[in-house]
């Protein structure tokens, strides 16, 4: 069976399946249906209905003291136990290409003694099993063969649109016994420290992101951008140049080594559009670039552009929004 490790986000009631896990479930249906799923460290009953809509007929639930705080190896033990319980024919284990999904499946691949393909975007061939996956932050794709008895892969974020199955199935919750050794708990989370509230807001889930690059000119060059961010109710995201020059904190960075965003609207200002930045923002539905260089990659890849100095354009835009609001 095809097994998907599902990440559940806190939310109303018993939580909801994360967007990227829903994408992974959608992708998994291309390999085989019906699906099995695994939820670790919390009750699966709250998401069983939603899992059924995505074609999952059985969800394993691994709970108990071993899963109270996150220990990647313990989670991997749960995945291996679920995969064994799920039956042998056409085995595949999938997770979303999130930090946690990638980490746990790397452990799983080691435990099973098989290869792992990270950030897969497509199945190219069933026999031999061949996938395409993102390399160079998505600037190139690699066709990769997976010749092992069990296929282990993570699904690249925002490359498959999450869609419920045509026909919903009844999803049954099955508690899973997992043998977790002391060694599996050796590296574990001992506490979680809440993040500081700042202009980056919830960058990864923001509907509007205003981006800033070298064109900001210096650490004092962000006031107008922050005002626009506030007027639009969005988040600020910056290019790597900005964080490596120390103008803004690293957690605001969008790109291959920063955040991957997928807003409805992304407004990159003074960002040239190196492939490392594009890796983090290419999933935006609409891109409106502001740049003084009409040939900058960010402009040619955008849907809309304003050609000009961001320090002239943004204050005028802010004033126009305020004027229309009658403020």
């Amino acid at each position: 069976m095809t097994l998907v490790l599902v990440e559940v986000e806190d939310g109303a009631g018993n939580g909801a399946i994360s967007e990227m896990s829903r994408e992974a479930l959608t992708f998994a249906r291309r390999i085989a249906v019906p699906l099995d799923a695994l939820v670790v460290g919390r009750a699966a009953a709250g998401v069983a209905g939603e899992l059924g809509e995505y074609g999952v007929s059985r969800v394993y639930e691994a709970s108990g003291s071993a899963f109270e705080s996150y220990a990647p190896a313990a989670w991997a033990a749960a995945v291996v136990a679920a995969s064994e319980a799920s039956g042998d024919a056409g085995k595949a284990v999938l997770a979303a290409g999130t930090p946690r999904g990638s980490e746990v499946l790397a452990h799983v691949a080691c435990r099973l003694g098989v290869s792992m393909a990270a950030n897969v975007v497509a199945v190219e061939n069933e026999e031999p099993f061949t996938v395409s996956r993102q390399v160079l932050g998505g600037a190139a794709l690699e066709e990769m063969r997976l010749d092992d008895a069990t296929v282990v892969l993570t699904v690249a974020g925002h490359t498959t649109e999450a869609q419920p199955a045509g026909t919903a199935v009844t999803c049954q919750v099955q508690p899973l016994d997992v043998a977790v050794s002391e060694q599996d708990l050796a590296a574990r989370v001992v506490r979680v420290e809440p993040g500081e509230a700042d202009a980056s807001g919830n960058l990864k889930s923001a509907k509007v992101v205003v981006g800033a690059g070298r064109g900001a000119g210096g650490p004092g060059g962000f006031d107008d951008l922050l005002e626009l961010t506030e007027l639009l109710g969005g988040s600020l995201g910056v290019s790597r140049v900005v964080t490596s020059l120390g103008w803004r904190p690293h957690h605001e960075q969008v790109g291959q080594t920063g955040n991957r965003i997928s807003p409805d609207v992304y407004i990159p200002c003074g960002i040239s559009g190196a492939i490392q930045h594009w890796a983090g923002c290419s999933s935006a539905k609409t891109i409106l670039a502001i740049n003084s260089d009409p040939d900058a990659p960010m402009v040619t890849k955008a849907h809309y552009a304003v050609i000009g100095d961001m320090h002239e354009v943004i204050p005028a835009v802010n004033a126009e929004i305020r004027r229309r609001r009658g403020a």
Partner: peptide, 27 residues
């Protein structure tokens, strides 16, 4: 590594719609 080959995703032709230049483009 299991690599069969690399390929580059197709680059769609630029379809950018330029709204204008400078502050005058604000409206």
């Amino acid at each position: 590594s299991g690599r069969v080959r690399l390929h580059l995703p197709p680059v769609p032709p630029s379809q950018v719609e330029v709204l204008g230049k400078g502050a005058e483009a604000a409206p």
